[in-house]
């Protein structure tokens, strides 16, 4: 068995800042993400999937809630011990994220190319011209036939699928060790979904990036993932290889989820 690239132990996120109304939306989550694998995190809306992702990236604002964990290790580095400045260097370079809404994940006032080139300039220290070339290359790798045109487009001039591919290009720009994809295709139609996911997993496979794929779509889990975590009410109720999960779910909730997904067909 390969080594875990991301190791999480007893991660909890409490929203509401310690008041009586505060709730544990993520409650003692532990898992290992192995190098190069695609790990699914499935569960119904509001079960804490997205908050888990935001907590891993350190994106939960202190005013909103608190994040606690016993261990949050990326490779050899213990993220809990690092200062904010060191975390900023890791974000986008070693760990990156693809968001759910491609409509709003790009800044509307800048051309797509500027935002993509920014990642290269910031994390790889490239000059303006080199960053531009790197951006063009990255865009052609996510399947754009005319990367030059995309580079010069404003986000609103691109379709949802195109925008999401730009976001994926940004996330994969530095060949991160871990990519957290939070419902990356929920906002897209089914055909575009398949294209985008295929590109995402291809790129990650080539770069050796491990993906934590957050989704509520069991079809996607079956098709693209190696293992799956099933989450409910902020806890992980089952962890299994995908084949095993579909063949014989151990937890009654997983069985319910599978039955619900099959319900449409049966």
């Amino acid at each position: 068995m390969s080594t875990p690239i991301l190791s999480v132990r007893e991660l909890s996120v409490t929203l509401g800042g310690g008041r009586a109304s505060s709730t544990n939306v993520v409650d003692g989550v532990s898992f290992d993400l192995l190098a190069g694998e695609v790990l699914a995190l499935v569960g119904e809306s509001g079960c804490g999937k997205s908050k888990t992702a935001e907590a891993l990236m350190g994106l939960v604002p202190a005013s909103l809630g608190s994040v606690r964990a016993r261990r949050l290790r990326l490779g050899e580095k213990e993220l809990l011990d690092l200062p904010e400045s060191a975390l900023r260097r890791i974000r986008g370079r070693d760990v990156s994220m693809v968001f759910q809404e491609p409509l709003t994940a790009l800044d509307p006032v800048f051309r797509a190319g500027v935002q993509l080139a920014d990642v290269f300039r910031r994390h790889r220290g490239l000059g303006r011209q080199q960053a531009r070339l790197a951006a063009i290359e990255m865009l052609s790798r996510v399947g754009f036939a005319d990367p030059d045109l995309v580079l010069r487009s404003y986000p609103h001039e691109l379709s949802g699928g195109m925008r999401q591919r730009v976001v994926i290009a940004m996330a994969m720009a530095c060949r991160p060790q871990v990519l957290i994809a939070d419902e990356p295709t929920s906002a897209l139609d089914v055909t575009t979904q398949a294209q985008v996911l295929a590109q995402l997993t291809d790129l990650a496979g080539a770069a050796g990036t491990a993906i934590l794929l957050i989704t509520h779509d069991l079809g996607i889990v079956a098709q693209y993932c190696d293992r799956a975590l099933v989450m409910r009410h902020g806890r992980i109720v089952e962890e299994a290889a995908v084949r095993q999960l579909f063949a014989g779910p151990a937890h009654p909730y997983t069985a319910d989820l599978l039955a619900a997904a099959r319900g449409g067909v049966a």
């Binding site: 900023r88 990156s96 994220m97 968001f99 709003t104 994940a105 006032v109 920014d118």
Partner: peptide, 28 residues
């Protein structure tokens, strides 16, 4: 609260730079 601000943080930009590069230009 928009996602591109979250995304800017997710690619490792510090707060000051996020405000200068992504928030203020959107108030132009």
């Amino acid at each position: 609260t928009r996602e591109f601000v979250l995304a800017a943080r997710a690619i490792g930009l510090p707060d000051t730079l996020i405000v200068l590069r992504h928030v203020l230009p959107n108030t132009a």
